[in-house]
Nucleic acid binder design. Sequence first.
DNA 1: GCCGTTTTCGGCCCGACTGTTTTCAGTCG
Length: 579
Amino acid sequence: MPEFDNHAIARMLDDTGDLLEISGADRFRVLGYHKAASSIRAWPEDVTTLSGADRLTEIPGVGAKTAAAVAQIIATSTFPDLEGLKRQFPEGLLAVMQVSGVGPKRARQLYDKLGVDSIEALQAALASGRVATLGGFGAKSAEGIAAGAEAYLRHHERIPVSTALPLAERLVAGLRAVPAVRDVQFAGSLRRMQETIGDIDILTSSDDPAAVMAAVRELPLVTRVLGSGETKTSVMTTSGLQADVRVVAPDEWGAALQYFTGNKAHNIHLRALAKAAGLKLNEYGVFRVEGGERIAGATEADVYRALGMDTPPPEIRGDHGEIEAALAHELPRLVEIADVRGDLQSHSVATDGRSTLLQNRAVAAELGYEYFAATDHALNLKMVGGLTLDGLERQWELIDQVNSTPGPRILKGIELNIDEHGGVDYDEDLLARFEICLASMHSGWGASREAGTKRMLRVLDNPFVDVIAHPTGRVLGRRDAIDYDMDQVLAKAGKTGTIFEINSYPDRLDLDDTHIRMARERGVRFTLGTDAHEAEQFRYMPYGVAMARRGWTVPGELLNAQPWDVARTWLRRFRTLGR
DNA sequence: GCCGTTTTCGGCCCGACTGTTTTCAGTCG
């Protein structure tokens, strides 16, 4: 029987909501499904365990009906409501609805009148000119939808944050130099540091909006102006990414920044709170409903304060408990890049890295690190020349030599390979000689969930495996996670004291925010490692810090926020070896 | 669909834009 995780269940609920919307169901009923899906997707426990304990309704947005549906999905692998909807409306309509310019109403109309049941069918209908003849559509609509369909097929995958962030920073720097610009900051999913970004949103404030809009059109990174009005200009940049730049009045700056940072669920919850307090929140400020007086708007903190709240860090704005914490003045002090005292995964020329230990150390010193771990690949990763005992002894000798000179301390580490049965490359006598051992999966993507779970549970039994590195093995946009029961594995890691890495390499960002929260609930602690394969990649650390923050990690849960003499006592080998 | 220091029933965020309309529905963020 297929296994369902939180993601899979959330997806079924989202699909149900979308198909219900196409069918013309009450919009609040539709909203109910999407809210439940969003909560389940972010829930830090495996809902299949909640289902057994009859605790599903503890999840916000999950009531009796959804709880029954989830229990049924887990028990029978099917959800009759969704199956029924799929018989009425083809699944392909879900993609059609994703096309920019097409919503539920138009998807329905396209299906009923023209039989459109996929993106390809939509393109054929557009090409035949029939779309423009439908009631409510016209030539302009058809043109817009055609562009939307092409964009959907071309790149509905999103941009890695590591691509978007440097570009956004250059755009912000360019705008900061414009005299008419007062404040400037990127917003949206980029400010929340989501792993992938749809487009770049930049907000500016000014007393002379026209001058700002003109300046945007002239920015050196801009290849094409897609549209430019009084308050918003959309441009295509040299790197092929779209950026939207908005300008607001200085006294609206905070409200606009709050609004354009989102996310959507966070904003909806805030507005409901405002409404309950007799206030109205929009992108121009916080207003009293009676009389319309504006009581906040100039800074983001003013806006949140007017609602009786502290300001949640952008990374955790997703309506997953941050609003309640902010109201109670109990927001956690999340880890910051300044807390990081070292990097706990790096490679060198000894295996597949491109920099020497000395080059790595020079950048580590520049970053102000106290230590970093040299974790080249172990023996069994043959394709990169995994280290033999001879190779290891040569590296250790070099490390001793380098460590005798001033600078960050290099830790004798290794990245072990977890084989298909949960074993690793070396025997315990050799493992005991390292200062830190990471273990990770580099194979086995095709294996079953059951096999994956056994493999992970087994490796957690090894007393010299201190850290599970890039724990899911996902590579953004290229490779899915290796399938295993994360809940069960994290529960065991909480007991064995095995630490989980938050890998900061931009293509990985593994664990993600949801898994981090799941791990924290199980008492699992974390390391941050860049997985640098050349010295400059030590600078990827902020991406991992962002993931840690998105997962609500505090410094007391992060090994490399501690000085090394404390950090080493967190490692499992410390208890095993008594030193 | 969910939910309750406004409610166990009647609410559920807000504004802008666009195109196709003669007053607004649909879509988007």
